[in-house]
């Protein structure tokens, strides 16, 4: 099973939908709400997003080695099946 980690915001409805997507599929995931995180964590999230050539647009979803920025259930599914 691929590891799923996501960066989210507590204010973002697409982040909530992304979480719901994985929950409904019974896929365990870890998440960090960027806006609720401490400064060191926030900095590391910023650096991680930038290192992928992205801005801090949420949800930022890592499925195994792949990254999906935004709520895109089709992409999530295809990466999970890959």
């Amino acid at each position: 099973m691929k590891k799923v980690v996501m960066y989210t915001l507590s204010t973002c409805p697409w982040c909530m939908r992304a979480k719901t997507f994985f929950r409904e599929k019974n896929i365990l995931f870890e998440y960090i709400d960027y806006d609720k995180a401490d400064e060191a964590t926030r900095k590391s999230i910023l650096e991680d997003c930038m290192s992928h050539g992205e801005k801090m647009s949420f949800p930022f979803v890592k499925i195994g080695e792949d990254v999906v920025v935004g709520y895109d259930p089709k992409k999530y599914s295809s990466l999970l099946d890959k």
Partner: peptide
């Protein structure tokens, strides 16, 4: 827009639109 609060005037069904990341867009 990124959060989906706004759409182009000719969009009737916002669910058909997908978010494109900055990297994909570039």
């Amino acid at each position: 827009c990124w959060c989906g609060l706004y759409v182009h005037k000719d969009v009737d069904d916002p669910d058909e639109l997908v978010q494109i990341s900055k990297k994909e867009f570039e």
